[in-house]
Simulated assay, not measured.
Amino acid sequence: MDELVRWLGVQLDEDERTAREAGGAAWEELPVSGWVHTSPLPDTEWQPPGYDHHVASAPLSSDRAHIVRHDPARVLREIDAKQRIIQVHNARDSWGMCVACPRDEKGAMQVEIEDCPILRALALPYADRPGYKESWRP
């Protein structure tokens, strides 16, 4: 597996851990109070005591809307989507080449995995994290 793919997997694992520690549930705005709180989980999921709690206070409704839009539930969905994209790029054909990477008219891969524009784009939001290489920047 290539360095970019490994590094990106570590970033996604860290985001997943953080989102799960935050409860993994959706958040809702309480416009009257200026608070954002966790949404109740379905009855089928375990909830720690007092789970329905305030997670942020923001005086501006636009700030609360942004916080709600980027709740742990969305983060987990985004991680799942990114992991699926990476899985496609890790799939190899009978010659050991990435099945998703661009190819020339003869069927040869045009880029190495680390040069794949899709994987580079997936890594870009993590450019401020340790280990990111400027050579990965799209």
Score class of each variant (00 low, 15 high):
Ala91Gly: 02
Asp115Ile: 00
Thr18Ser: 11
Leu41Gly: 07
Trp46Gly: 01
Ala25Lys: 05
Val32Trp: 03
His53Arg: 15
Glu105Pro: 00
Arg74Asn: 11
Ala25Val: 15
Met109Val: 04
Ala58Arg: 14
Ala121Lys: 04
Val55Asn: 12
Gly23Cys: 12
Gln11Asn: 09
Val10Tyr: 08
Leu124His: 01
Asp128Val: 06
Glu28Leu: 14
Pro102Met: 04
Trp27His: 10
Asp115Lys: 01
Gly107Asp: 04
Val5Trp: 04
Glu134Thr: 11
Met1Phe: 03
Val88Ile: 11
Val36Asp: 02
Leu60Gly: 07
Glu112Leu: 06
Pro125Cys: 09
Gly50His: 11
Gly9Cys: 07
Asp15Met: 12
Leu119Ala: 01
Asp71Glu: 06
Leu4Thr: 06
Gly50Val: 07
Asp52Arg: 15
Ile118Pro: 00
Glu28Tyr: 10
Asp2Ser: 10
Pro59Lys: 15
Gly23Arg: 12
Arg84Met: 07
Met109Asp: 01
Gly34Tyr: 13
Arg137His: 02
Val32Asp: 13
Glu45Ile: 15
Ala127Lys: 11
Arg6Val: 13
Trp95Met: 05
Leu12Ala: 08
Asp43Thr: 15
Val88Thr: 13
Asp2Thr: 07
Glu105Lys: 06
Glu114Cys: 01
Gly131Lys: 06
Gln110Asp: 02
Ser61Thr: 13
Arg17Val: 07
Ala100Tyr: 00
Glu14Pro: 09
Arg17Leu: 11
Glu3Asp: 07
Arg84Cys: 06
Met97Gln: 02
Asp63Leu: 07
Ser135Ile: 07
Glu114Asp: 13
